[in-house]
């Protein structure tokens, strides 16, 4: 089918060689047609982002995935730098900034804490969705669609079998997004995109 969405995976992981979960997630979607993976810390070891190249890639793809471990209830610093320098006025937002209209963004995170601690009455007080609000708002300002995040919880406790299961789930989701077999409307009812696949 030629009507496939083009998917851009941006992995933000400063210690990828020590990663357990994110490495399996990447391995599960490696070599998928129409899915391009970019290891951002590998491409920009001095944190100096090539703005033109990044904007060009955004224009080429339909679905952008921000994949990263959940650091201090947010992303590693390079993603923030990327947002700061790449999503320029006149390109991503503003009267003339229409380059990204209608594209979809999904956050894919791995978190040490279990899901039940990220509840309003729980240990962490805030939900993952609340903590991700700045990212969601950024996406909205750029006239893009923010999909519910894909979250792997409790990573410290996961054994290799559970990690591989999570990776397979991730693969199913990426394929479904690529092939357009789930619509954003259907997903909006869920807190996480994971929940749709259960």
């Amino acid at each position: 089918m030629s009507a496939q969405n083009k998917v851009l995976i941006q992995l933000y992981h400063p210690l990828f060689h020590k990663s357990r979960v994110n490495r399996e997630l990447i391995r599960a979607i490696d070599n998928l047609d129409g899915v391009r993976i970019r290891l951002m810390y590998d491409l920009y070891p001095d944190l100096h982002i090539d703005i033109e190249e990044e904007q060009h890639l955004l224009e080429e793809h339909d679905i952008i995935v921000w994949q990263h471990p959940f650091y201090w209830y947010s992303s590693p610093s390079l993603l923030k730098e990327w947002i700061d320098v790449v999503l320029q006025h006149g390109f991503a937002y503003g009267r003339e900034g229409k380059a990204l209209v209608g594209k979809k963004v999904i956050t894919s995170i791995t978190s040490g804490g279990r899901r039940d601690v990220y509840q309003e009455g729980g240990l962490r007080k805030y939900t993952i969705r609340q903590l991700l609000a700045p990212f969601e708002q950024t996406v909205r300002l750029c006239n893009m669609l923010y999909l519910p995040p894909f979250v792997v919880h409790g990573t410290h406790m996961l054994d290799i079998k559970a990690i591989i299961e999570a990776a397979q789930e991730y693969r199913r989701m990426i394929i479904a997004l690529r092939d357009g077999t789930i619509s954003p409307g259907e997903l909006s009812a869920f807190e996480y995109t994971n929940d749709y696949f259960i």
Binding site: I49, I51, D84, V85, V86, L87, Q88, H89, G90, G94
Partner: peptide, 15 residues
Amino acid sequence: HHSDHSWDVESLREE
């Protein structure tokens, strides 16, 4: 400068 443009935007102020 190209990346200055990301942080200090005259065009945004105008708009």
